[in-house]
Design a protein around this nucleic acid. Sequence first.
RNA 1: GUGGCUGUAGCUCAGUUGGUUAGAGCGCUGGUUUGUGGUACCGGAGGCCGGGGGUUCAAAUCCCCUCAGCCACCCCA
Length: 415
Amino acid sequence: MQKVRKVKGTNDLFGKEILAHNFIEEHFIRACKSFNFKQISTPILEHSDIFTRSLGSTSDIVSKEMYNFVDQGNDSLVLRPEGTAAIARAIITNSLEQDVNKLFYHGPMFRREKPQSGRLRQFHQVGVEYLGQQNHIQDLEILLIAEKFLNELGIRKKVKLELNSLGNEKTRKEYNKALTDFLSQRVNELSNISKERLKKNPMRVLDSKDPQDKVVVKESPSILEFLDSESKDFFNKLTSGLDDLKISYELNRFLVRGLDYYNHTAFEYITTEKKSQNALLAGGRYNGLVSNLGGGDLAGVGWAAGIERIAMNLDQLRDCDKKIICFFTTSSDLDGELLKIVYNLKLDSKIKINFISSGSLKKKFFKSNKIGAHGCIVLGESEWESQKLVWKDFKTGKQELIESRKIEDFLRKKF
RNA sequence: GUGGCUGUAGCUCAGUUGGUUAGAGCGCUGGUUUGUGGUACCGGAGGCCGGGGGUUCAAAUCCCCUCAGCCACCCCA
């Protein structure tokens, strides 16, 4: 019989991996709460049009990566490929437009891509969204959360912040025209993929990795010189704000976001190591998104980070400081008695109890060491006649007798 | 979707120009006279050598197909 197998690009999380996930989520939540952001959790299932309307039909996510299907009720549904559009939808459906919306979320996202390092079909993101009236302070605030988050994970020094402005709609319209003119003149020098992109979405040519393309792109006009006065003013406020906060960043005029809803601010935290999937955390401003989905005229800015990608860059997890104490008997007849004691123990979470029921006494000690126990409690036949237990400390090798009634006090005092 | 690399025990891998019952380390498990570990010794379980087909007296080994995994491109977190 063939072994059952998992869906391609999905992972079971256990052992070290899930510890890393939890570790990252905990730090993320703490950073968000410290800025008074509120949690939101939206469904994994959404109507397809939430994403087709907002991300742009030329985006790869919509054109080839969405897990969509028609259900038994003839609804066209999708496993959400990203969080921002879903949150915009939630704000509209719950009539939250009037509130100040400082939100954070975490959960699985789905894209049907060919898996590789740092890329999965089901992956996990954490993200923040700040909705309201446009104000550069909001951009700064979500960047501060990102800074705090990455710092506390100890990986801020491994990444750099790259920043660009995509300007407002007017800016992009003019820039796109200029860029198209420029690229069209040199279309023969471009790769085939870039020739295609030139027709559909010329700004995508800017972040091509093709060396030939890069030569051409290097000489292309810069969007930063096309910013109109509103866009320019906004971007200047943001960069001087970052300077004041002493947050280091690099301007990268080739940084374009893949999704249509972005405008003005665009940024990425990327690893300085040479890796193919180097964007750990990325985001930007999306002023038109909510109104585009039929809601009010609400500006927004936010980011999302890939938990798996961050986990790949985590040096090591801090060991949890709970101590393992093994419990076993000298005779299996007494296992029931010992279980009763364990069941009645009321301890705080300082220790983990590991009950051992198989093997000779020697093997039980052996196993205790194997799993890194701090010590063990042994219920021995002869000591049990006077209701006593043996405590053995593995560091010192010493053992002592304790009354079974007092075991709780004993352990509490010890740990 | 397009390429490259890799599939042998639970894990990491050996396996010589095709040659008989398929190997190691770690892990798991049992024991070393029956109540004491971290480091010893002896044993055991566990493999349709990813799957299918072909060449051959003979295939883990050579050829073809297929599946899976990893990596890269595209794109993105």
